[in-house]
């Protein structure tokens, strides 16, 4: 299955969440690969703590592959090559976790027929070996997004499930922007239909992920003054109404990721040890990643509309 992660605005935590979801899914026993399609700023290497490719690779990444400079893009086994010792061995029962990094100084490019063909070939190639391919796009409308929309509409990928995750923060501006990215002019659905997708099928394969969400009922906010809590609850209610009006209502939400200080300070994988041993991360965050990782592949979560 292909899962494509996108967002309208930057700073939504799209990359860090999708890396963590890839990691959780691998822990759950699936073979997972992560494709860094954020060609302008490939930073997934840093999130997986693979120092040599922290800002993209010099050894032939996805950018070079799509432009036809190399026959196959570089693959990095995360279990083996991560610098974080707590992640370095593949736990029993876990699947493969492989990163396909972008190129250092890659930059955007426009789509040609050859690039589209290479992209389709790559997806078919990876689907042979991996249960889940996470494609992380850059924020906003990009050529990479157009490319993936076009590739998934090709005959070779027709029978393969592909699902879109649209990340947004839980604020007015982000809700409106995320809605525009999906339903607006030149949005995902309109652009997808032009590329040969069935609008309804495509719409059914899109879900939203709310990130950095402050839960007004959580224990961490116990110190707030009652007036502040009331104000927060009101804001939350307004946002829910706004989201509903913009077709981002509860049934369209696949997961809600709580605000976590670790993710705010440093974008990284959160291991169980970060929660239980060093207690720097919140159990709720890991639970949210874990649930999202399960729901991605759970047909029931996508059928309920």
């Amino acid at each position: 299955m292909l899962v494509i992660a996108t967002s309208d605005k930057g700073g939504t935590g799209r990359s860090v969440t999708s890396c963590n979801v890839a990691y959780r899914r691998a822990l759950q026993g699936s073979d997972v690969c992560y494709l860094d399609f954020d060609f302008g700023s490939p930073t997934s290497g840093a999130i997986f703590s693979i120092d040599p490719v922290s800002r993209g690779t010099e050894g032939g990444g996805l950018h070079s592959y799509l432009q036809g400079k190399i026959a196959e893009p570089q693959r990095i086994d995360v279990w083996r090559q991560t610098d974080r010792e707590t992640l370095r061995s593949r736990p029993p029962g876990a699947g493969r976790l492989v990163l396909l990094p972008g190129d250092q100084g890659g930059g955007e490019f426009s789509m040609t027929k050859d690039i589209l063909q290479r992209c389709t070939k790559l997806f078919v190639r990876l689907l042979e070996e991996f249960d889940l391919c996470v494609v992380d796009l850059s924020a906003g409308r990009s050529y990479a997004a157009e490319l993936v929309l076009a590739a998934t509409a090709q005959q070779e990928l027709r029978g393969v499930p592909h699902r879109w995750l649209v990340f947004h923060r839980w604020t007015r501006q982000h809700v409106i922007a995320a809605s525009g990215l999906v339903y607006g002019r030149r949005g995902l659905i309109e652009a997808g239909a032009e590329r040969g997708h069935d609008s309804q099928v495509l719409a059914d394969s899109i879900r939203f992920v709310r990130t950095a969400v402050v839960n007004p009922d959580s224990e961490e906010l116990a110190g707030l003054r009652p007036t502040q809590v009331v104000w927060l609850l009101d804001c939350n209610k307004d946002l829910q109404e706004l989201a509903r009006q913009h077709q981002l209502g509860r049934t369209m939400v696949l997961a809600t990721i709580p605000l976590d200080p670790v993710l705010q300070m440093r974008e990284q994988l959160i291991s169980d040890r970060d929660v239980w041993a060093s207690q720097i991360a919140n159990a709720a965050t890991v639970a949210a990643f874990d649930q999202l990782a399960r729901r991605i592949a759970d047909d029931a979560a996508w059928d309920e509309l």
Partner: peptide, 30 residues
Amino acid sequence: IDFGAICGQIMGEVQRSPYLDRRSPFKAAR
């Protein structure tokens, strides 16, 4: 000689055949 690219090319051609549904029951590394 890049044998890997040449083998990968011919395997890719077969895997993209219109006669296959590309829904394998499990995944396996090459």
